[in-house]
Structure formats: structure tokens, C-alpha cells
Design a protein around this nucleic acid. Structure first.
Lengths: 245, 245
DNA sequence: TTGGTCCATATGTCCGGACAAATCGTTGAC
DNA sequence: GTCAACGATTTGTCCGGACATATGGACCAA
């Protein structure tokens, strides 16, 4: 399989390897390069693009790391089967559902400042009793409640307001304010609904609930968000793709 | 912070960059290089090791990809805070628990061959009705039941026998037979226990259960295992680390 | 037919060098 | 005293080349 239109712009500030990788990724996602097809070998590709082999290798390696391509020595580089392609790995539930077309809405029930209890303090790596921002929301999809979400954030990280939270979601607001969560530790469990939770979510008491707690960290290692969420198991599952490296 | 003892063996078949990366990883995990400490710059490191800068960069890049180091232009390369280090991402539950010291045991309840129902056929990408291997196990930890596990595999992939399964676990047997799952898609949900499940797991009827279904794929994209597992939520949670890239 | 050897091919590893760009502390002008 | 400009430091990108090694097919011999 020959490679489709790929060209580079040397006057662009975008690194050459990234230009190549982006165009290859587009070609793969649009199936211009169908699953299983072979790329030209690195030497030819480099010559055709007027680049060096290391640069082309960097572009290919970038896509290999992201699971779009596989390299086999002596054989070549192929587009992986679409079934095993990896999705984005750190998104908020809002993004998840938005992408799936379920059109969720969020209602902020509480937005204030409290003293960190031991659990929150440990998660955010602050001293117990430190003032932190507390956020309680209810997520709805298709007009019915889906999840109860409680978050705690360090004070001073950013200014939150209710309309923006309801319109954009917490993660988008974080990113718009220059806070880029890049890593999160999550624990997923289950329990039965208390009477209060059942009422809030429209489930029967004793219904199964999915629980998720998460601590998100910025590139610097600073904890930026602690969340304790509860989902209706009848309407939600976590889907994830795991990779062995 | 200066770098500890790192040396390379040019007569070894192990790539130089990998030798360096492994030794750095050991130093990081043993806290010889504590979190936050800075590595020497790439030029000095290369000169000290008698390697070129690209080789040293490859070693560092390897560890950056794995979340052990962060690079910042103009600043240097630092060991990330241990709280945010990423664990291995594709292991079986057996590995998980074994590492945590809970010493699990497994009992095989059924190992036979059946016709694939539509769900199994879809997961393994075979035609419905194709003969597949069925495996049902119960996992115990600390003498009490923990999970019911049902797996389906393509026939002919490997020969399974009960003693080996109970001693080593499915994933280890797969790897020993040259089948290397490198990617899995999982869905995690919850539901309440049926009377039969409750009895098998030692829970009350209506107790919350965690459910996990998984399809694992080999490097080639071939589906190698479909699993539908049920865990006692009172004794198990899924812990995972997500990464934004 | 079967098995092993050889060879072309493609990726894997490594080198040495060059310049670009981000960061941060210092210096100097106002 | 404040702030902007500068410069040292360090990683980011890119080049051109060399040799190593795994793969798979073709060829040849038993």
C-alpha cells in the first residue's frame, strides 16, 4: 500500500515529525489507510517527504506508542486492526457521554469552601483542616438522573462559577485556566444505594450503584482534583482499554 | 543530584539504551534517585557513560513514556513524585492479588468445549456456533470466595489443564505458550446478586456485585480471550491509573 | 516432499553534530 | 525598586550515515 498525500511545511512552527504523524493519523482514522495496510518503508517515506529517516521514525514511533501502527522488524509497518485501537484515556464523564451523543446536563447543588477532612486532605496532599473548594453536582442524561458527583479542589487553583460549570464541565474549565490534568488514579467499586442516594438518583433503595473515586494530578505532580462519584449501575458502565507495554 | 552507578556493557546483546533505562529505573524504584531529584543533563550523562546523546535520550524517553521521569525544556529531567507513578496496565486479577500479598487460590469448576453464543462469538470475532473453550473458575482469597470467572477462548490456541490453571492462572499459561495479550477492552459495571451468585460467593441475595467483561487481543489483533467476571464488591475494587497523552 | 541455507528487505540500534526554543537567574536601565 | 533585556543552561528537533538483526521467501539438497 502506498502512502497517500503527505506533505510537510518547513516554515511551520509545528515539528516536522508531528506534521507527518498527524497526517498519517488522519489517513488512518479516515480509513484512507485501511486496517492491515502496510506503509512504505521508512527510507522511501523519508526520501519522498524530503526528510531524514530519524524524523520519519519519530513520526511513526509516535503513532506506534498510541496504538495506531505496529512495526515488525524485517516486515514493515502496518495499520492496526481498528477493533484494538486505543481511545483517549483521561476524560471526564461529561466528555464520555457527550461523545456518545447522550447529551448530558449538569446541575450544581453546592459550591463552597470547607475544611478538608482526612480523606480529602490525604488525596490532595494538604494538611487536614486546610480550606478547600467543595463541589456537588448531579448529572442527568435524557432527562433522568445518572450520577451524584462530589469534588474537592485546592483553593486558589481557579475561580469556579455555577453557569460555567453547568455549561462546560469541570475538566474543560481546568484546562481553560491552564491546569492540565495528565494523570489520574481511580478506584472503581460498587455498593447498594442508601435511601438518600436512591431518592436522588431515582433508584430503589438497595439498587446497585457504581462508585468511583479519583485523584487527578497535573504534570508537575500536584493534585488538582479529588472526586467521589456514584453512578446508577442500571444506566452506566466504565469502559476502558488496557495496554501491556 | 548526581546519577548513581550506571554502566553499560557493550558486549551484551541488550540494547545500550535499555541497559541505561533499566538501571535508572532500578535507582528510581529503590529511591536511590528520590522523587523530585534532577538527573544530570543529557550531554554530561552521555559523556560519563561513553554513549551518544541520542542513546541517552532514548533511555530517558523510555522512562518518560512510562511515567517515571518528566522532562522540561530549559530545566532538566526529574524523577516524578512516587504518588503519580503508573503501574503495569494489563494484568490478570491473579497477578493483582498476588502482588498485594493476599495469596489467592483458584478452583476450576468447568473446562470444556461449547458452541459460541452470539455474545461470545462477537467478542472473539468468530461465527456464532463455532466451537470454543469454556472455562469457569472461582477465586478465593484468605479462604473466602472473591469472584466467579467465566472465560471463553478460541479452540486450538493452547491446551489447558486444570492443575496448571489452578497453579499459574490463565494469563501466565497464555504467555508460556507464546500468546502475549498486549491489549484488552474492559467494561466495568455493577448489579445486585442473584440467589445463585449470592450462594456461590457467600453474599446475601441483593448484595452489590462488581461485573467486568474483557476481551484481550494479541499483538496481531487476534482476540485471544473473552472473560465475564463477577466480584464481591465488599471485598474488591478496581484500581487504575489513567494517562492523558 | 521435506528441511536447511542463503539472501533481500525492513526495522532496530547507535553515532556525532547542528541549530531552535523554553526556562530561569542576572544584569542593567529607568 | 521595578521591569525589561540578556545570557547561560537544558531539552527539542533534525540531519546523514553506519551496522545489527529479525523476517520471510527463494533456492537447493537429502
Amino acid at each position: 500500500m502506498s502512502v497517500p498525500v503527505v506533505s510537510v511545511d518547513r516554515s511551520s512552527p509545528v515539528p516536522l515529525y508531528f506534521q507527518v504523524a498527524s497526517q498519517l493519523e488522519d489517513a488512518i482514522r479516515s480509513e484512507t489507510l485501511p486496517p492491515g495496510s502496510r506503509l512504505d518503508n521508512e527510507i522511501q517515506l523519508a526520501r519522498r517527504l524530503g526528510l531524514s529517516r530519524p524524523t520519519v521514525r519519530q513520526a511513526i514511533g509516535y503513532l506506534v506508542d498510541r496504538g495506531l501502527l505496529v512495526r515488525r522488524r524485517g516486515v514493515g509497518t502496518q495499520v492496526v486492526h481498528s477493533k484494538v485501537r486505543r481511545p483517549l484515556e483521561l476524560t471526564s464523564l461529561y466528555d464520555d457521554l457527550g461523545a456518545a451523543g447522550a447529551m448530558p446536563t449538569t446541575t450544581v447543588h453546592r459550591l463552597d469552601e470547607v475544611d478538608a477532612d482526612p480523606t480529602v486532605a490525604d488525596a490532595l496532599a494538604v494538611s487536614p483542616g486546610t480550606r478547600v473548594v467543595r463541589l456537588e453536582r448531579v448529572r442527568h442524561a435524557e432527562g433522568r438522573p445518572l450520577a451524584l458527583m462530589t469534588n474537592h479542589l485546592p483553593t486558589g487553583l481557579l475561580d469556579l462559577d455555577v453557569p460555567a460549570l453547568e455549561a462546560k464541565g469541570l475538566y474543560q474549565l481546568l484546562r481553560e485556566n491552564g491546569v492540565h490534568p495528565h494523570l489520574a488514579k481511580q478506584a472503581i467499586g460498587a455498593r447498594t444505594a442508601s435511601a438518600r442516594e436512591a431518592a436522588a438518583l431515582g433508584e430503589r433503595r438497595g439498587a446497585a450503584l457504581l462508585t468511583m473515586t479519583r485523584v487527578a494530578y497535573a504534570t508537575t505532580g500536584q493534585a488538582v482534583e479529588y472526586g467521589a462519584h456514584v453512578y446508577r449501575a442500571s444506566r452506566y458502565t466504565f469502559e476502558l482499554t488496557l495496554v501491556e507495554r
